[in-house]
């Protein structure tokens, strides 16, 4: 269960405060696939960043698995983020100096809940499920954009998160690759029962979600 209570975000700029998110209430059931749609600048990514513990809200509460994540201290929130929340950003976000298998294993190694050998074993399985079994030792620059995005999904799943947040994960991909990545995300939601929160401005993608939340001017449009 994921809940937002009157979540707000205001950015201070030289020209004054900009309200990105204005008191949003949102409940997402466990295992649900929810799409958040809206135009650029509507507050979609800001909302996702607050839900994911990346950007502190100006007000309100974000509750994931009965934990108000912004009441945790920095270290507690980092640990919670690592274990409970998976991210797929609109950019690749892989470490270029590490191989794909290293990139995927890294969150598990940081969590220190399993031995390195177990983390690597699991990373190899996930990359295999994403069709990247032949690229374990490849560096990000040696694979295509779509393969990089699959590796990012594998990395997001390494700690079996309760929630997977995807912020326009197919924004810079061609149509075929976009479809493949969406198929993988849907499979994660369907097969693992992972709560999926997808931010997109692509209505065709959003229509595959069990629920669509439309945001405009920092508010949910009924």
């Amino acid at each position: 269960m994921l809940s937002c209570r009157r979540v707000a975000k205001t950015y201070g700029t030289d020209r004054g405060d900009v309200i990105a998110v204005e008191g949003i209430d949102l409940d997402v059931e466990s295992g649900q696939f929810t799409a958040i749609i809206g135009r650029s600048g509507s507050g979609k990514s800001s909302l996702l960043a607050m839900i994911g513990g990346l950007s502190r809200p100006s007000g309100g509460e974000v509750i994931v698995d009965d934990t108000e994540i912004w009441s945790l201290d920095e270290a507690g929130r980092a640990s919670f983020r690592n274990l409970k929340i998976g991210y797929v950003f609109q950019f690749t976000s892989l470490l270029q100096t590490l191989r794909l298998v290293d990139n995927v294993a890294l969150p598990a190694l940081l969590a220190r809940r399993q031995l390195a050998a177990q983390a690597y074993d699991k990373a190899a399985h996930l990359l295999d499920q994403m069709g990247l079994a032949d690229y374990l030792d490849a560096y990000p620059s040696e694979v295509s954009a779509g393969e990089q995005r699959r590796a990012v999904i594998a990395r997001a799943l390494i700690n079996d998160p309760a929630v997977l947040l995807a912020d326009e994960p197919t924004a810079d991909l061609d149509e075929q690759t976009e479809m493949e990545i969406m198929d993988e995300l849907l499979a994660v939601n369907r097969e693992r029962r992972t709560t999926l929160l997808l931010v997109t401005h692509n209505l065709a993608l959003a229509e595959q979600a069990g629920r669509i939340v439309h945001i405009a001017n920092g508010r949910i449009v009924p």
Binding site: D102, A116, D121, A124
Partner: peptide
């Protein structure tokens, strides 16, 4: 495991 990738990170863990 489909393939055994050599570990480069976390060996000391």
């Amino acid at each position: 495991a489909p393939a055994q990738a050599s570990m480069t990170l976390g060996r000391r863990l």
